[in-house]
Computed example of a mutant assay.
Amino acid sequence: MARLLYSATMSLDGFIAGPGGDMSWLTGYLGPNPTIEALLAEIGAILVGNRSFRGDDPHRGDTEKEGKAFGGGWEGPQFVLTHHPPATPVPGITFCTDLDSAVVAARSAAGDRYVNIIGADVARQCLAANLLDEVLVCVAPVLLGDGVRLFAEPGGAQVELERLRSAEAPLANVLRFRVAR
């Protein structure tokens, strides 16, 4: 069965997006990363939150990469968790209105590969529902000061993680963890 992996690039002070969801900061930290390049072959489906799906794109203005998963580095089934699916279908995108059906559909589509989660709120919901299996974080050498946190759960419980590996890349260090159960 497919495992759920939350992957994100984060500033050293814990933000995956700047104020208002601004992703422009990320542009300078996208580049060669052997860990991410290997991960792309392990992803069978993407589960993305509505804000991430409709939000700012670090590839804005790049007609070859804008609006594409991993800047066009990955193609496959995508599932968007939203309370308000669009009236007009979007090619290649399945809209789901609840977490359980989104996870079931994404896992089914992913087969024995990963369901990659994009979006802090979806990751938080999966963690709270005890569905999240792994977290992969690229830590960029920048302090954003404010924005969207990797995980934000005021009053939340401590979650133990088991380190699987760490690696250095030219633009960001990579940390990979398993959620301890």
Rank of each mutant, 00 (worst) to 15 (best):
C126S: 11
E66C: 06
Q158F: 10
Y114E: 07
N130Q: 14
D22C: 12
E168K: 03
A87N: 11
G20I: 05
S24C: 05
I117P: 00
L161N: 06
E75Y: 03
Q158S: 12
R163C: 11
L164G: 05
G20R: 10
T94P: 04
A45K: 07
A152R: 09
D62P: 13
E37I: 07
H59M: 10
L30Q: 14
G20S: 12
G55M: 09
Y114T: 11
T97L: 04
M1N: 09
T97R: 14
P86Q: 09
R163D: 00
D56A: 12
V90N: 07
D22Y: 08
S24V: 06
A140F: 11
R178C: 04
L12A: 15
S101N: 09
L127T: 04
M1L: 12
V48H: 00
A123D: 03
V137F: 01
A45Y: 01
A120F: 00
R181S: 10
E162P: 00
G61F: 09
A102R: 11
G31H: 11
G111S: 08
T63Q: 12
R178P: 02
I93C: 06
L30M: 15
P86H: 10
R165I: 04
T94D: 08
V142W: 05
H84Y: 04
S7G: 14
N50Q: 08
V179M: 10
N130C: 14
I46M: 10
D13S: 09
C126W: 08
I93T: 12
G111I: 12
R124G: 07
A102D: 03
A109H: 04
G55K: 06
D98L: 03
A169Q: 11
V174S: 00
N33C: 15
W25N: 06
K68G: 02
G49L: 02
R54H: 08
V174K: 00
G111C: 07
L131W: 08
Q78T: 15
V104K: 15
V159H: 13
A169L: 06
K68H: 11
S7Q: 14
S52K: 04
S166Y: 07
A41H: 13
W25G: 07
G147I: 03
C96I: 01
N130S: 15
S101R: 13
L143I: 15
G72Y: 08
F95Y: 13
L136A: 08
G21N: 08
T35V: 14
R178M: 05
A17Y: 03
M23Q: 15
L81P: 05
A109L: 12
T35G: 08
A140C: 14
W25D: 04
H59P: 02
V142S: 05
N116C: 13
C138V: 04
S166Q: 14
E75N: 09
P154T: 11
N33Q: 14
V159A: 08
K68F: 02
